Amino acid sequence: MILTGLLLGAALGYVLQRSRFCVTGAFRDLYLARSTRYFTPFLLAIAIQAVGVAALTGVGVIAPEPASFAPLAVIGGGLLFGVGIIMAGGCATGTYYRAGEGLIGSWVALIFYALFAAVMKYGPLGSFTEAARARTVADATLQETLGVSVWVPVIAFSALVGVLVVRQVRASAARSTGRTAVRLPARRTGLGHYLADIPWNPWVGGVLLGIIAIAAWVLSTAAGRNGGLGITTPSAKIATFLTTGDVTLVDWSVMLVLGILLGSFIAAKLAGEFRWRVPDSGTILRSAGGGITMGVGAALAGGCTIGNSLVETSLFSYQGWVSLIAIMLGTWGAAWFFLVRPQKAAAASRPAPVLTPAA
């Protein structure tokens, strides 16, 4: 049954590559461009998963267990993870699918991310992580605090997301009125054209991400693992397996993340977008630093932009939503430091134009 993880991971990698769906870009663009082009579809993915998970839980197909809330670890880890994804040029899933496209910088970030997640979870710093995450509060979820059914936050959140989706679609339609799209000659016809030739709309990526997240709960439960999509723990398991040879670490979740690499590689090859790209030394060093920071942050926070910001949020756990906010703040701070600040400094150092008097 663990091979279903590989198949679902391949589907996820394909969707991420074709839709260019990266949570880093969604958070970063909110700050830099005031754009919700990817952020609202990401919220839509959470809403779709929330409805599906609540329904499947109600009929007894799955039995999700929201993570306990350790405020200091979640906030600190989330901030670190947000900084790390800007340094690495992508979040955990974004790093995986870009590695599948042949980006060496993403491979560097991925290796250090998996290594330091293993150090924090199973290695010499495991006791520190365990102690930090042991400082929890009583309630784990919003519905637990309010004493209501999970359907109350599910319906309220879904209604809010519905309003945001309608507003964004209308605004996008208004901006595109009168514009003529430039269409390149199709390389393929029929289904192949849509699968490989053209980039997918962010809405397609968001909807499919939500559906895949629901399927992950069902398939993972069938394989004996009670959980949905996850990236950090299986990445740590891969690093630990490679150093210890412990085959018991190779489970459904490990197959899932390996499948992301496979799916994104297939998508990139079919679209003619795969090629090995070697960045400069500065980018490689920053990618390594980003990977380290992501691994440490995700281990402390109990998850990454998938495990927390997508999956735990759909359960309305405090860990999920507080981590999402912390990651966003870390992303914005790092975007200012690494992107905005250097641009402003460069602009300030340019000599003023010399004006010559008119003849």
Rank of each mutant, 00 (worst) to 15 (best):
G5C: 09
L7G: 08
L7R: 00
Y14W: 15
V15R: 04
V15I: 11
R20G: 15
V23Y: 11
D29C: 08
L30E: 10
A33D: 13
R34P: 00
T36M: 09
R37D: 07
Y38W: 12
T40W: 07
P41K: 05
L44G: 06
L44Q: 02
A47E: 03
A47V: 07
A55Y: 12
A55G: 15
L56E: 07
G58M: 11
V59C: 13
G60D: 04
V61M: 14
I62N: 07
E65G: 13
E65A: 15
F69S: 00
F69E: 05
P71S: 08
F81Y: 06
G89M: 07
G89R: 09
C91S: 04
Y97N: 03
A99D: 10
G100I: 00
G100P: 04
E101D: 05
I104N: 13
L110Q: 10
L115G: 04
L115F: 15
V119L: 12
Y122T: 10
F128D: 08
E130F: 13
A134T: 10
A134G: 14
A134L: 10
A138W: 12
D139A: 15
A140P: 05
E144G: 15
E144F: 03
G147L: 01
W151R: 07
V152H: 03
F157V: 05
A159G: 11
A159E: 10
L160W: 12
G162E: 08
G162A: 10
R170E: 15
A171N: 14
S172H: 11
G178R: 11
A181R: 07
A181D: 13
V182W: 15
V182T: 15
L184F: 14
P185K: 02
R188E: 12
T189V: 15
L195Q: 12
D197H: 12
P202M: 02
G205L: 01
G210N: 08
I211C: 04
A215H: 03
L219S: 00
T221P: 06
L229K: 01
G230T: 06
I231L: 10
T232P: 00
T232N: 04
A239G: 10
L242V: 14
V247F: 12
L249Q: 02
S253L: 08
G259C: 04
G259T: 01
G263T: 05
S264I: 11
F265I: 01
I266M: 13
K269A: 12
K269T: 11
E273F: 03
E273I: 06
F274R: 11
F274H: 10
R275F: 13
V278C: 08
P279R: 04
T283W: 09
I284H: 09
S287F: 01
A288C: 13
G291Y: 00
T293Y: 05
A298W: 05
L300V: 01
L300N: 07
G302Q: 03
I306L: 07
N308I: 04
E312L: 10
T313G: 09
S314P: 00
V322D: 02
G330Q: 02
W332H: 10
R341T: 09
P342K: 00
A348T: 09
S349H: 06
P351F: 13
A352L: 14
